[in-house]
Amino acid sequence: MHPILHHWPRLRLFLLAWLPLGAAAGLGPFLAAGGAGHDWVPVALWGELFATPALASWYLVRYTPPGAGIGTLAWRVGGGAVTTASLWAAAGWAWFQLWAPVAPTPAARFTHFAPLAMGAVAVLFVSVSALHYALVAVDGRAEAMRRAHDAEVGARDAELRALRAQVNPHFLFNCLHSISALCGHDPEAARRMCQQLADFFRDSLRAGSERLVPLATEVALVRQYLDIERVRFGERLQTEIAVTDDAEAVRVPPLLLQPLIENAIRHGIATLVEGGDIRLQIRADGGRASAVVDNACDPDGRRGGTGIGLANVRARLHAVYGDQATLTAGATGTRYRVELSWPTEATS
């Protein structure tokens, strides 16, 4: 996109400024060299005509980024200025011959004023090139800001999606069904489950509104979630959580672990007749923290879910830590394992 031709307000300003400059580039040297004042029209038009090569300098600018080095820059822009000025002068010579019957002095005095006029338009050519470089820089910064804004919106979107995944409707419906079942036989347990469910949702929503939360909060949410699922799965769900003391204060994007635990249940424990175990291990050392979710799975089971949960966790880790965060996931035999690793100092 041409930074001037494609922006009407800029083009209007440019033409307004060019009108006197272009005319002056021709008329100045012409009058100084003794040209007759009443023959000004063809000379002024000749000057205005240079707007075309001046604007075309954009193509030179586009193929010569500022990083190309001062030598290349000077050589190309300077060369462009000399070439276009020469061509312009040649066109002028032919142009004044046509006008000779009505305005004879431009053709007659041509050799006297042409060199100075060429110098003037060469300077204009270099100036307009410089203007193009300046406009590209301005546009580049606007584009960078737009991208940063998009990234921020994307991150917020991911957060909302994570929250939605958290409040997985099927999880809620199954819990309500369990509560309904407990009401008949064990009203006390039904009441307890209502309480657990309320606490879990409240704490999730609170954590979800933060940008970063300590791992201790994440682990507490996971424990609440597992306690609820244990009502449904009973003995089939075995869990083991190990967190080193120094890892508890490490901060992470909220609701990072819960989707992994939910996957471990849905695609692991729930697919096994006898159930199985989920192990969560978290530690921090040497400036990095890691979380491993390792669960039993059916090696012959149908291939997991859609991978949306995992992609979401990866995107959220990436949004905060960039390339310094890693997520690996895969099955070996009867175990499925997801490992997250990230720097303990947030980079942004």
């Binding site: 199954n174 069904h177 369990s178 079942a181 407990l182 008949g184 007749v273």
Partner: peptide, 12 residues
């Protein structure tokens, strides 16, 4: 049903 509470409510 693989979930005990769900079997329980059906029985009831």
């Amino acid at each position: 049903d693989d979930e005990a509470p769900a079997r329980m409510v059906l029985r009831e």
